[in-house]
């Protein structure tokens, strides 16, 4: 097995002076999908944002063997980190095309055809303002902004949150396509999607890693899943936010 693409060692993060991630250590494999799981509010989103330097952080983070924990956000991203934030964060006042154009990183932008193929809807709506799209379409824009570039790793935060079941399948299929060429760190509440995509899982509790292992090992063990995630594998509760 090749070396992990992302090594996180003792990562801590603070928001407004409060510790939200505490000494988290895990790895993201060089291929496939690593899912970051845990109950609501355990710091999954904060972990991803800390990796990107979007919030105040300390600890060691290596991307493909090189430290990135001292770099500003834009430099980290320029090294080939694609990011799909929680709540999509599309630029509502910009058109779909402008959202994508903004995301293109020069020579890295080799994914235009892939995006057009995965999300034909976005091509049709290129001139429309992103704010006028449905939630599902906005999520496609957000994912497309990451896939339009050639990346070393993708950080994807709750891509199916608040989406209709049919759209969830579209998004999952798109992510499966992406995962064939680039490793992904995925935060996801929907355990069916996790089961479908993830090879490895990392479980956080109160900002710390409490479980690491193959995805199947966790998801097939109902008792363990209930204990760690507070949900049953069959039906997971919808995030109320």
């Amino acid at each position: 097995m090749t070396a992990p693409v992302l090594v996180v060692d003792g990562l801590s993060a603070r928001i407004a002076g409060q510790q939200v991630v505490e000494e988290v250590s895990f790895e993201v494999a060089a291929t496939g999908v690593t899912a970051l799981l845990g109950r609501n509010g355990v710091g999954k989103t904060s972990t991803i944002r800390a990796l990107l330097g979007l919030i105040e952080r300390a600890g060691r983070v290596e991307l493909a063997g090189e430290r990135i924990d001292q770099l500003p956000t834009h430099r980290i991203v320029q090294r080939g980190v694609g990011y799909v934030p929680e709540d999509r964060e599309v630029f509502a006042g910009l058109t779909v095309a402008e959202n994508l154009r903004l995301a293109e990183r020069g020579a890295d932008a080799t994914g235009r055809d892939l995006v057009a193929e995965l999300f034909p809807e976005l091509v049709q709506r290129a001139g429309q303002s992103a704010g006028s799209l449905s939630g599902g379409q906005q999520q496609m824009v957000s994912i497309a902004r990451a896939l339009v570039n050639r990346n070393v790793v993708l950080l994807i935060d709750e891509p199916t949150k608040g989406l209709a079941p049919l759209i969830v399948q579209d998004v999952a299929a798109a992510l499966a396509r992406a995962a064939a060429t680039v490793p992904i760190l995925l935060v996801e509440q929907n355990l069916q999607v996790v089961r479908q995509l993830a090879d490895t899982v990392v479980v956080l509790e109160s900002g710390r890693v409490v479980h690491r292992g193959p995805a199947a090992g966790l998801l097939d063990d109902d008792a363990l899943t209930t204990r760690l995630l507070g949900v049953h594998t069959e039906r997971e509760t919808e995030d109320g936010r």
């Binding site: 990107l52 500003p72 834009h74 630029f91 910009l94 903004l102």
Partner: peptide, 21 residues
């Protein structure tokens, strides 16, 4: 101009797209 318009909406997300805002 594009960067400025996007930055007015959400500056953090602009940097998260790899742009030195």
């Amino acid at each position: 101009g594009l960067i400025i318009r996007a930055g007015v909406e959400n500056r953090a997300m602009v940097t998260a797209l790899g742009i030195d805002v």
